[in-house]
């Protein structure tokens, strides 16, 4: 038995079917992640229709396992939190429809948690005393964003990628090098034995907003380099390519983040998202932050992947602020940060 508020978190935005039970926004009682990586690997990337189909088969067992692990039942819940976007809309709809049905059946509050916000809250799970305001860098296959977190559910987007996400650049170069899918971990493994200064790569500057990111130029430069070698019938040193790419991406991420800390005066930096599992990024941000007297928090790698515990955690803090959603909440592929919190007020019936 648990005396606190238990939130059931549901996350199906991409290729992980996840269900979690979180107590008081800080204690993970269960965090079941059913990965579909093998299903999509043969296609070299996530196939949306196949992901959606698999979610339908995995959602009930995921929730059942979570309750079993936690020794709880639906009667113990205080609310249901779910990701309504951004993500693959067909995949999101499975988790969202399921979550809404549970909220309806159990007469419980429904909470919509933006996927990027959920990633940020993975840090709250391991640092329960972490309180806004703070700066967050969210990096994944789909996003690269700098966010000023003013309060629970109060976000200001300071910068974002104007083209590819950082993880996307990793995935594409990994494919070009024949490293398979997913690309990020493969690049990191290979980079360990490579020379990060081997390739002269451009640092992207975005004119309109110094806090925006751009990774397409970097990606193109690496692809051109590989093409030139191929024309000369030379083999690339894959480890050097991986190391140089990773170094360039990490420098761009760390520089913008420190700039954002300067501009906002924020002293706490919180790293989040799938690419937050990258060792070089974690180390570089920690070191650079420490030099300037900034506190840098990084979540454990397991909480960097898509998981429902971070959704359940955010759900607890949203519930405390009264930030609940109506049963008409819809899944939106490119949901803007914060839009899920105004769904009811937008007059959506």
């Amino acid at each position: 038995m648990h005396s606190g508020q238990i939130i059931l978190g549901i996350e199906t935005s991409c290729d992980e079917t996840s269900a979690a039970l979180v107590a008081d926004g800080r204690e993970i009682l269960a965090n079941v992640i059913s990965s579909q990586v093998n299903l999509h690997a043969i296609y070299g990337g996530v196939v949306p229709e196949l992901a959606s189909r698999r979610h339908v088969e995995l959602i009930v067992p995921a929730v059942e396992t979570a309750f079993k692990e936690a020794g709880l039942t639906f009667d113990d819940l205080s609310a249901i939190a779910v990701t309504p976007g951004p993500g693959l809309v067909g995949a999101l709809l499975v988790g969202l429809s399921y979550a809404k049905a549970v909220a309806l059946a159990q007469s419980l509050p429904l909470i919509g948690v933006h996927h990027t916000a959920a990633h940020i809250y993975s840090n709250v799970l391991v640092h329960p005393d972490l309180k806004p305001p703070f700066l967050s860098l969210v990096v994944s296959g789909g996003h690269t964003s700098l966010i000023h977190v003013h309060g629970h559910g109060q976000y200001e987007l300071l910068g974002r990628t104007v083209d590819d996400a950082a993880g996307e650049a990793f995935d594409k170069i990994a494919r070009a090098l024949g490293l398979g899918y997913p690309g990020g971990p493969a690049i990191e493994r290979l980079a360990r034995s490579g020379n990060p200064d081997a390739l002269p790569l451009p640092q992207a500057v975005v004119k309109d907003n110094p806090l925006d990111f751009s990774f397409s130029g970097l990606k193109t430069a690496v692809l051109n380099y590989l093409n030139t070698l191929r024309q000369r019938k030379q083999e690339p040193n894959k480890a050097d390519v991986a190391a140089s790419l990773q170094r360039a991406v990490v420098i761009a991420l760390v520089e913008r983040t420190l700039e954002a800390a300067d501009i906002t005066g924020l002293k706490k930096i919180v790293l989040a998202g799938g690419v937050a599992a990258n060792g070089e990024l974690r180390e570089a941000l920690r070191t650079a932050g420490a030099k300037r007297g900034l506190q840098v928090l990084v979540p454990p790698p397991i909480l960097c992947t898509d998981n429902a515990a971070m959704v359940g955690c955010a759900g607890y803090w949203y519930l405390r602020q009264g930030l609940t959603a109506p049963l008409s909440l819809n899944a939106i592929a490119n949901l803007p940060l914060g839009a899920e919190l105004t769904w009811g007020k937008l007059g959506e019936k």
């Binding site: 339908v56 059942e64 067909g90 709809l93 059946a105």
Partner: peptide
């Protein structure tokens, strides 16, 4: 396909929790 998943996911949520 999408319509079917909305219906069945909803039905699963109702059936499992009740």
């Amino acid at each position: 396909f999408t319509g079917l998943r909305i219906g069945l996911s909803t039905a699963k949520g109702l059936a499992q929790s009740l």
